[in-house]
Write a protein that binds this DNA or RNA. Structure first.
Lengths: 150, 150
DNA sequence: CCTATTTCAGATGGACTGAGATAC
DNA sequence: CGTATCTCAGTCAATCTGAAATAG
């Protein structure tokens, strides 16, 4: 028999660092489950989204946009390129860089992931009203913007 | 040069599962840094808090209270027992169980961790007002309570 | 000379699984 | 018998570090 979150110590229930950590576990599980059958993970999704929104970019740029580590970018792009969802080509203007481009197949794959992840959001936030969801997003964004300036 | 969170794709900035995940990274780092010199980590802290709040408990109970996996409980309690912060004794009423007890040294150590973690909360939530912090805790708790019932 | 980009090899900590031994 | 507890061994995805090769 499982004890619900109400069974946790008061101190832990009121500790924001812990609270955020626990909600992230639930959130990550929901996102993982949503992507389960797609062959993609959160990193792949974030990279595809960045390419759709900003157009072709270098790997270093993608890392800054998504906050994914340079080294994990390499691995995720290898996967995506193998499946034909992105293409890597050398940047003639700066030969250290790869220009990464979203393919048509990649855009279609991304649309599918979008839908599945919308479902994961609803699952995570089922207990919250629309204004509550908006407020949560606002507060989390405020925290993140504050720390990204550090 | 690092791009702030404002530089992230709009879709990602508005995606709660992602947002929570990113804030959790910041939160975990703050908590880790706060505990850095203490020889304890988040698991140790959660276990000590549970023992203080509920008194002596079996390892299975501690796992339910803290949502730490049975197997990670074993490792964390090994550490704490080695340092004299908890004691394990067989439960005479049910000989499958260990009764885990907080020692005086453990309580002193816990008081130190409490203080350090208070600092980590302020660091994480620096950008939020008091009512905003309370609202964030309320919303996160609501999500967690909702999912703990699944 | 120093910095930036891509890549690889690996460390680390956390969440989790499976199985065995023991006891209810 | 089936179930619960404790323990160990080990998997897994994600975060992150260090260093090499190349190029600005």
């Amino acid at each position: 028999m499982d004890i619900a979150h109400e069974g946790a110590p008061r101190r832990l229930r009121a500790l924001p660092t812990r609270l955020v950590n626990q909600v992230a576990i639930v959130a990550d599980r929901a996102a993982e489950r949503a992507l389960e059958t797609t062959g993609s993970r959160r990193h792949h999704y974030a990279l595809l989204v960045a390419l759709r929104e900003f157009g072709p970019a270098s790997q270093a740029d993608l890392g800054r946009r998504t906050r994914i580590d340079r080294s994990d970018i390499v691995a995720a792009l290898n996967d995506l390129a193998e499946r034909g969802f992105v293409e890597r080509s050398p940047d003639p203007a700066d030969r250290r860089r790869n220009t990464v481009t979203l393919t048509a197949a990649g855009a279609r794959h991304l649309a599918e992931l979008d839908q599945r992840l919308d479902g994961a959001q609803d699952e995570l936030l089922a207990a919250l009203s629309s204004p509550e969801r908006a407020e949560l997003v606002r507060l989390l964004t405020k925290i993140l913007d504050d720390h990204a300036r550090g």
